[in-house]
Every structure is written in structure tokens, then in C-alpha cells.
Amino acid sequence: MEALTDQDGIKRYLVNINVNGDPYTVIVKANTLLVNLLRDQLDLTGTKKGCELGDCGSCTVLLDGKPVNSCTVLAVEADGRGITTIEGVARSEKLDKIQESFVNNAAVQCGYCTPGMILSAKALLARNPKPTEQEVREAISGNLCRCTGYVNIVKAVLEATGD
């Protein structure tokens, strides 16, 4: 991987990533986490920080289609890969079916877990378009929500399945 070293000897790496369909070349230190790259350098603040230890799922993004906690992934490790953040879920004024279902089912309260929740659900429906309730619960069990008791979230995901 290409790297530049500044006058203080600090090395910075050239990272090529595709975010929400758009190619970016960014320069990061080795210790830059993917979540900070997205939030601080690309201004994609829909990806939240809740615990920074991989426990809460607020920072969930899709890495090559799979949900991961961006707080424990190095930006340099994402080089050459594709990332979907919450900002990339709806591609026009029209919301994605899951997003719409979250709004219609009162699945959003404070909204802080919502981006990660939606991305986990999105990944589930991509590989399993007709999940059972238990499969939905499992798929979002890495996303903690303190407001809803998950009741309406589960309902919203189930309602977004199928045709």
C-alpha cells in the first residue's frame, strides 16, 4: 500500500475505497478507524459511535455487503473494498422499503441505533428475503436499542420482507 511519511516521521497511507457507489481516495494514518474516516473525513455522520468497542452496533456499515462494526475496523483494512453507510441506502428522494417500514411502524424513537439497525436488516434481507421473526431478531441482536424494546423494529423488518 502506498504511504507518505511527513517531516515528523508519521506515515500516512493512501486508501482507495468505494463508499455508497462512489470511489474515494483518502489519506489516513494507520491507526485511523473506519468509523472516523467515514465521519470525520467523508462527513458521513449517519454512522454513529455508541460504545467504540463493538458492543452496540451503532457504527454498523456494510463492508462488501456484510454488516461490520466500523469502530473495530482499520481504515487501511478497508482498502479496495466497498462500503455502504446509511446515507447510501436510499438512492433517491424515495426511501428504501426498510426505511419506509421503520417510519411507518414507529420503529424509530431517538434514532441513534436506527442507521445500524437498518443496515443489519438490509444485509439480512439481501441474503434471506423471507426471514422468520427469530432470524430477524438474531440479525439485529448486535444492534442495541434502548428506546423501543425492539418490538416495532422487528415488526418493521418483517413488514419490509417479501414483495
Binding site: 449517519g46 454512522t47 446509511i86 441506502v89 436510499a90 426511501l95 421503520f102 414507529a106 424509530v108 434514532g111
Partner: peptide, 13 residues
């Protein structure tokens, strides 16, 4: 539906 539902599902909030 909630006033702020849309901005919260798009990450704009």
C-alpha cells in the same frame, strides 16, 4: 408518523 422519522432513517439527523 413521527415528524423526525425520515431524517432519522436516512442518517441526516
Amino acid at each position: 408518523p413521527k415528524m423526525d422519522g425520515r431524517v432519522k432513517v436516512t442518517g441526516q439527523a
